[in-house]
Design a protein around this nucleic acid. Structure first.
Lengths: 230, 230
DNA sequence: GATGTTTATATCGTATACGATATTCGGAGC
DNA sequence: GCTCCGAATATCGTATACGATATAAACATC
């Protein structure tokens, strides 16, 4: 007896488990940099914030631990994961490889609609003013271009790497004057995709990511001498 | 007042939490292929097996879910993750990239001691007869060679990829006659490292992994027509 | 006999409760 | 005043308990 009511109430109600809801929200807060690295994540506090018990909170934290966003200190609880400069450099190096691969596979296959969509994300990117929006649009731009490769696992791995370094990238973007260079590189990448040129798309993408990584490492090496950030 | 007793009782007693112990053990069972893909992991059953409650079991499962070894079905519990042939192919493709990179960085830096150690693992590999030992020695051989790169994150990412596809690789090795080819490729790789040749080490390693991936995809495409393994 | 519906059972997902460990604070000794 | 030690407190990690959901079984209906 499926009535209209059923259709309304049942429209996509997967009823996310409490554990998954907490995990998603915490993940976003960490990736966005709202929770600083090293911050102690007190379970009771988080639990009462979400109006749940500690059990789903701990499950969420264990999930994020495996994803590399949280670190458990034995009998002392969980903290937001800290990355050393060397580790950030390694992640950016891997990102460069994977994104170059995705670009190479995708470039010959992109549709005109996809290009238009990517161009739209770029326009929005130029108009944006805060780091959070930049990060979001940056991901939309690149992932839109990679989609045509038809490689969901590769895309997921790239996204996982993004999640780990995103908060550091954002800190860099909002402080330094990396924007003009970024905009120029984005335009070049889009152009290579428009020409359906795999070599150019791959190499420009690789250089783009490696460049960001080098800037990041340089900046952090200079600014971390004082702060005890690992 | 550190006495001899302290040294004995305290020698590396980090007192692994119940959750971590369960996670480690389950992870090994899944990677080794002891638990078939799709197998339902009943929480009460696992809990009583480890003489703990469901709480640490669920935390362990959430951890393994984030690592890609377990999949949660809403309100139906956890199952051992299944990979489609396409997904396995993608993982092998990424492995090839990352391992080639590790080989390139490491080859010019390996010590004679490292080479001797790798050669020893190869000898043991030839003597081994079961898939479990092969997998172990295969990892030891390659990871030994990669260590000189000084890239712990890259190595960890490679290991993570190993964990996801290892059970499928083992199934292949124990059934087909891939051994001779594998042994030959291993010898060539070791030789390239002995010459400290980055290009050869990288390319041979890439081909070695891509080859294994292609064999795996070919074999599974043929043999999965019948079995409903996703 | 096949199909749909109700009841029983098993398993999941989470709240509560509690011992174990770490941290903080106050006082004793020097 | 500083260091060391012990009690009080806070937080973690896990066992127990229980409502919610899905699966299986029994039954009714056609």
């Amino acid at each position: 007896m499926s009535s209209i009511l059923d259709q309304i109430t049942a429209q996509k109600m997967p009823r996310l488990s409490a554990s998954d809801h907490v995990a998603q929200t915490l993940k976003k807060a960490i990736v966005d940099g709202l929770l600083p690295a090293g911050e102690l994540l007190r379970q009771d506090e988080i639990a009462s914030h979400f109006h749940v018990s500690k059990i789903p909170v701990r499950e969420a934290l264990k999930h994020l631990e495996a994803k590399g966003l949280v670190t458990f200190l034995p009998n002392r609880g969980a903290v937001v994961a800290s990355l050393s400069v060397a580790e950030i450099g390694e992640y950016m190096d891997i990102r460069a490889m994977l994104e170059a691969r995705a670009a190479r596979l995708s470039a010959p296959l992109v549709s005109d609609e996809t290009l238009e969509q990517a161009r739209h994300h770029l326009d929005q990117f130029e108009l944006a003013t805060d780091a959070g929006r930049w990060g979001e649009l940056n991901w939309l731009f690149h992932s839109t271009l990679y989609a045509a490769a038809g490689r969901p696992i590769l895309l997921a791995e790239i996204r996982s790497l993004y999640n780990k370094v995103e908060r550091y990238v954002r800190a860099l973007l909002s402080i330094t004057t990396e924007l003009p260079k970024t905009l120029h590189e984005h335009a070049e990448i889009l152009d290579a995709f428009a020409r359906r040129d795999p070599d150019a798309a791959a190499e420009l993408t690789r250089a783009h990511v490696l460049d960001a990584g080098a800037s990041l490492v340089h900046y952090l090496n200079y600014h971390r001498s004082k702060g005890g950030n690992k």
